[in-house]
């Protein structure tokens, strides 16, 4: 199967940069500790803020660190490789192959995400588990739901990043759009402040936006704050955004291809 082979190669490719991975794990662990103490201070002051207790909050801090690279909250990943190919014009070579861009790059990004989950995701979580009293999924079903939710989180994030990258077909450089997406993603993914802490309608809004699929939904499944039907609704929410974004990506890439083909490049 082509896409599996592509994902495996992407995994291996990232695995060649061991030093970068180790440095990243260290950074994630340091930030995990800092954010944990910040949350402990907040929840000592208000022990049921956002419906979380203090162990929920600390666990959320470490899940956030695990998700940064896995879900590529800051952007990056396979879509950056595509952006580079658009800038240099190498993307024209991709048109000489009988495969579509979207499936190819999604497979690449999933391979990358798998590598980051096993390294930048797992290792800091183990550090957090040693230093703090974390909460864990309460059974195999919850673990499974969390796993599916993580995959969907990557796909939603990929969809957004792909749209940012595709803008380069018209703008030639996606740096500005990318920075905008980083700021929005940082805020609305709940990476800095959990979305459950947002007041009133801003919380409802944030919960409906695709960035909620990055961290808040998988974290709530992990913590058991979304159990039973709630967990399933969480997955449906993610899957709906994933499908919608991939659909838009497909249309945009089709237009981008026509632009290259019709207008030259």
């Amino acid at each position: 199967m082509l896409y599996v082979a592509v994902a495996v190669r992407a995994f291996r490719r990232y695995a060649t940069y061991t030093a970068a991975t180790l440095a990243g794990i260290f950074t994630n662990s340091v930030f995990g500790v800092i954010i944990s103490y910040t949350y402990i201070a907040v929840w000592t002051h208000n022990p049921s803020a956002g419906g979380y207790d203090v162990s929920d909050a600390v666990t959320y801090a470490w899940l956030g660190q695990a998700m940064i690279m896995t879900v590529a909250v800051w952007g990056g990943g396979a879509t950056d490789d595509l952006a580079a190919r658009i800038r240099t014009g190498d993307v024209a070579l991709d048109l000489y192959r009988p495969v579509g861009l979207l499936g190819w790059w999604l497979a690449t990004d999933l391979g990358r995400a798998a590598y980051h989950l096993l390294t930048r995701g797992l290792a800091p979580t183990l550090v957090g588990a040693v230093l703090f009293d974390l909460r864990y999924p309460d059974g195999p079903v919850t673990w499974l739901l969390f796993a599916v939710s993580t995959v969907l989180a990557v796909v939603v994030s990929f969809g957004i990043r792909m749209l940012v990258t595709a803008s380069a077909f018209w703008l030639l450089d996606d740096t500005g759009v990318k920075q905008l997406q980083i700021v929005v993603a940082m805020f609305f993914s709940g990476l800095v402040v959990p979305l459950v802490l947002f007041p009133g309608w801003t919380r409802d809004l944030a919960m409906a936006l695709p960035w909620a699929a990055f961290l808040q939904v998988p974290a709530d499944i992990w913590l058991g704050r979304r159990a039973g039907d709630e967990a399933w609704w969480g997955l449906i929410f993610q899957a709906a955004w994933a499908a919608a974004l991939l659909g838009v990506c497909q249309v945009v890439l089709q237009r981008a291809r026509r632009k290259v083909v019709v207008q030259g490049g």
Partner: peptide, 21 residues
């Protein structure tokens, strides 16, 4: 320009092409 995958061994590029085509 190159159609090969930069970070991978040559063999992997050939394997991917086998599947692509």
């Amino acid at each position: 320009r190159t159609t090969l995958w930069w970070d991978l061994p040559l063999r992997d590029s050939f394997e991917l092409l086998r599947r692509i085509y």
